[in-house]
Structures are given as C-alpha cells and as structure tokens.
Design a protein around this nucleic acid. Structure first.
Lengths: 154, 154
DNA sequence: CGCACCTTTTACGTTTACGTAAATCCTATA
DNA sequence: TATAGGATTTACGTAAACGTAAAAGGTGCG
C-alpha cells in the first residue's frame, strides 16, 4: 500500500507500516505541494509550529499538518510574525469551542490591519515623494541637456 | 564668536577656532535638528555617507553635511538602502553637470517606484485576505455564542 | 555493487540599520 | 575640586526567517 494517492505519485520509495488510515507524505513532497523549502518546514517545526509524525527519523506529514501549514502561510501572507501565528495556533483545543483562540486571532487581526493600513499610507507617501524627486531630477536633466551651464546639487 | 546662531542656543559650551566662515554644529545639535540619534550620525559617517570636519576628535557639521543628511533621510524615506544612497551621492561632482549622478538617481528611482507599487499591491492583497479572515472569525464567534455546538478549527 | 535520490542533524551565515553598553576624555561651572 | 554634560572609540547585540554547507545514513534500481 502506497503512502500517497496514485495521483500524486512523485517520489515515494519507502514503505511505511500501514497501520494508520491517514495519508502520509514526506518532507520533499510536502515542500513541493506548498511551495516552500525543506528548510522552511524544518524551521517551522523547530519553532513549534508543526509537529509531523516520525517513522524512525523521517518526518511524516498528515493532512492535519497540511491544514496547519496553510494557516501559517496565510498568517505570513497577511503579515503576522511566526511568533504571532504560533501564539494563535497554540490556543487551539480540539475539544472546545476555541472561543479564546478566535478572540485572540480577531484581536491580533485588528491590530495587524491597522499596521497594514499605516504601512500603506507610508508607501503612498513614499511614492509621492519619490515621484516629486523624479520630476525634479528630470527637470534638472533636461535643463542640463538644453543649456550647458553650471549649477548645484548632491 | 559662537558657533551657532543665537536662536538655536542649546548646548554649546566649547569654543572653536573661528577661522572658517561656516556654521559648525556638533553632533548633539545635529542629531536634535534632524531627529536622529548620535549613533545614527556616526553610523552614517562610518558608512561613508557623511564626512564632518574635526576639531581634534570632535565632529563638526557644516551646512554641506546638513544637505547631505537631508538627502539621506529623503532616500531612506522613499525606501532606498543606505548603500543606494551612497552610490548616488558618491557620484556628485561639484565641478560638473552631474548628469551621470542624475541619471543614476533617476534609474534607481524608477526601479524603486516599481518596488513600492508592488509592495502596495501586496499590502492591499494582505488587507483583503485579512479582512476576509476576520469576517470568518467573527462569523464563527457569533455561531459559537448562539449555538454551543462542536466544530473544527485550528 | 554503486550511483542517484531522499532524508537527517548541527550549526554558522545572511541582511539592514542601527541599539547598547563600556571605558575614557574634555570642560565649563558651582 | 567635584559634578554634570557632552564627546570619543570599540565592539558585541538585535530582529526574522530562513540559506547554506557539512557530514552522514537509508533505499530501490540497473
């Protein structure tokens, strides 16, 4: 019995005790599937964000790990630090309503949203200033081309 | 003869050989004037971005240094690295038309503008995703409050 | 068997712009 | 003279998220 579904037959050489009814993938396939490097997956694990099973020393990722990775990547996309992501994930309790987790996530999200909006304002500002400077520089260049006289800058 | 104009009398205790017709300020005043730390000024000097005169070991900044610092701060504001700023400044030649400098500046600016626009797009994207997530989380929270049933997340 | 391929752990390197001591010096003033 | 304020140099520390060796081990295949 193969570890991965026939459709994803990529680099699956090892057999693994098929006691579990889950789909296991090794680190290489996991990485490809989500467009990250092996280093990244190991790094996330080292930081306590992932916790794949082991076959000896080989990491085996289940769809639970995939769900977590998706969340991590979404978190990073919206600008959360891995620390924030971990903090939120650590609150997950499969036996409860996770109200606390959701509240924390919402709280952090609101703050992050503010940060993002500030960043956007800064960037808009920068774009404005940069455009101005460029206009000036173009002006100076054209003057310099037209009338070869001395001036000052720098 | 004082080093600074009467209006800016702040912390000027030392006298300095008044041979030059320039206005010299020491690092403390320079820092206050431009809202940077002493460390920053020394750091910029270490990186070759500033080159204040010296009275013994004491740094003395002229209005030329002020002009350069202004440019540095503008550069950083629009997102240039100090390396870029230095590269552009290094091309300044008081005896020429500085066409090369201006061209480089314009070239770098165009690229930087593109980067800024990409960043803004990323941020807008992030804001969108984050807002979506927040909507979902709020939804989950309200459901959880209304009907205390099990579910899944994490 | 030997090679290719995947995997592991350990651990230093990278980037950027300073922060933060630590130890010392100079000086005008009370 | 003691003290309060600057000033100097040297140099390690910081943050974030991995990159990049290095050395080694397991495995199926021709």
């Amino acid at each position: 019995m193969k570890l991965v579904s026939p459709g994803e037959a990529a680099a699956n050489t090892n057999d693994i005790p098929a006691e579990a009814g889950e789909e296991f993938v090794r680190i290489g396939e996991m990485a490809k599937k989500y467009g990250v490097t092996l280093r990244t997956l190991r790094f996330y694990e080292d930081k306590g964000l992932l916790n794949p099973h082991r076959d000896g020393s080989t990491r085996l990722y289940t769809r639970r790990d995939k769900a977590r990775l998706k969340l991590i990547l979404l978190g990073r996309k919206v600008g959360f630090s891995l620390r924030d992501v971990k903090q939120m994930m650590d609150l997950y309790d499969p036996t409860g309503t996770n109200t606390k987790q959701l509240r924390l996530a919402l709280d952090k999200s609101e703050k992050q949203l503010v940060r993002l909006q500030k960043q956007r304002a800064l960037i808009d500002d920068a774009i404005g200033e940069l455009s101005n400077s460029m206009k000036t520089v173009r002006q100076m260049l054209s003057e310099r081309t037209a009338v070869p006289q001395a001036s000052a800058a720098g």
